[in-house]
């Protein structure tokens, strides 16, 4: 009688042993999959199509820095535009004047609901649709405007959420010291909102960097190619994917550090609270 009671739990594995065994199974599956990939794929063909060293070098040397420069400046300008317009829209959306709220809501919902590429196509068609119409400061004017309009709609919502995330007590404390609504917004609410929205804003910057690749539909000259346009152009000429892969990695040079910064900020933000 007593023996059976003892024998029963002994046969079962402890949770720790079970977890160990399960991890072992996972590693085994991984090894099998990697083994299959190595033995079945035609590696020389893959390397030749995507990672040709000579083409890598040609891509870098023929104008990658310039294309990188254009991607950065296109994005940065649009982001600044988006920040300015987005902040104005956010304040409009929080306004006590109804028509301001409706206008801001209409703008935000319209441009957030559209595929970004539609906005870009519209801008490319503008000179055709309205003869004589030209946006100044080419190519930046058009790119910043098109990309900035898309960005501002998202940024407006982010900033509005940030302002509303500032606790009510902060506003009340400021107002009870005699600050006007405007002073409270500038000195108390916006600085705190800005800290709250810094991580999501950086995420918007990452998205905008990637969306900047859509400017190919606007039509720009060879001199003003961004990374995507440039990579595609060489890839077309060489009938090889390597230049596109190189251009892709150039994007990662921008987006990965930004992602790391976002994660840092989120971690320190969580600590501060």
């Amino acid at each position: 009688m007593t023996e059976t009671i003892h024998a029963e739990p002994r046969r079962r594995l402890s949770p720790r042993k079970r977890a160990q065994r399960w991890r072992l199974v996972q590693y085994a599956v991984l090894v099998v999959l990697v083994g299959l990939a190595i033995s079945l794929a035609n590696w020389s063909q893959i390397l030749d199509a995507f990672f040709r060293p000579d083409l890598t070098w040609t891509t870098i040397e023929q104008g990658l820095p310039k294309a990188f420069y254009y991607t950065v400046t296109y994005t940065a300008g649009a982001f600044i535009y988006g920040l300015v317009v987005g902040t104005i829209l956010a304040l409009m959306k929080l306004s006590s004047v109804g028509p301001y709220r409706w206008l801001a809501t209409a703008y935000i919902e319209f441009f957030r609901g559209l595929p970004a590429i539609i906005v870009f196509i519209a801008f490319s068609l503008l000179p055709l649709g309205i003869p004589g119409f030209r946006i100044p400061f080419p190519p930046y004017g058009t790119v910043w405007l098109a990309l900035g309009i898309v960005g501002s709609a998202y940024i407006a919502e982010t900033i509005r959420a940030g302002i509303q995330a500032v606790p009510r007590g902060q506003i009340e404390a400021a107002r009870s010291l005699g600050m006007t609504a405007g002073q409270t917004m500038r000195k108390i609410a916006l600085p705190q909102a800005f800290r709250i929205v810094l991580p999501p804003l950086t995420n918007e910057l990452i998205l905008l960097t990637k969306d900047s690749s859509l400017i190919f539909v606007i039509g720009i000259t060879v001199e003003e190619f961004d990374l995507t346009y440039y990579g595609r152009e060489i890839a077309n000429n060489e009938a090889n994917m390597t230049p596109l892969v190189v251009a892709g990695f150039a994007y990662l040079l921008i987006t990965l550090p930004l992602s790391i910064i976002v994660r840092r900020m989120e971690r320190s933000g969580a600590k501060a609270r």
Partner: peptide, 20 residues
């Protein structure tokens, strides 16, 4: 009211110091 409030100090249960 903004001018009037300058001379009325208010203390809250939750302090409401400006964290920045």
């Amino acid at each position: 009211i903004d001018t009037a409030r300058r001379h009325i100090g208010m203390l809250f249960q939750s302090f409401n110091l400006f964290p920045h």
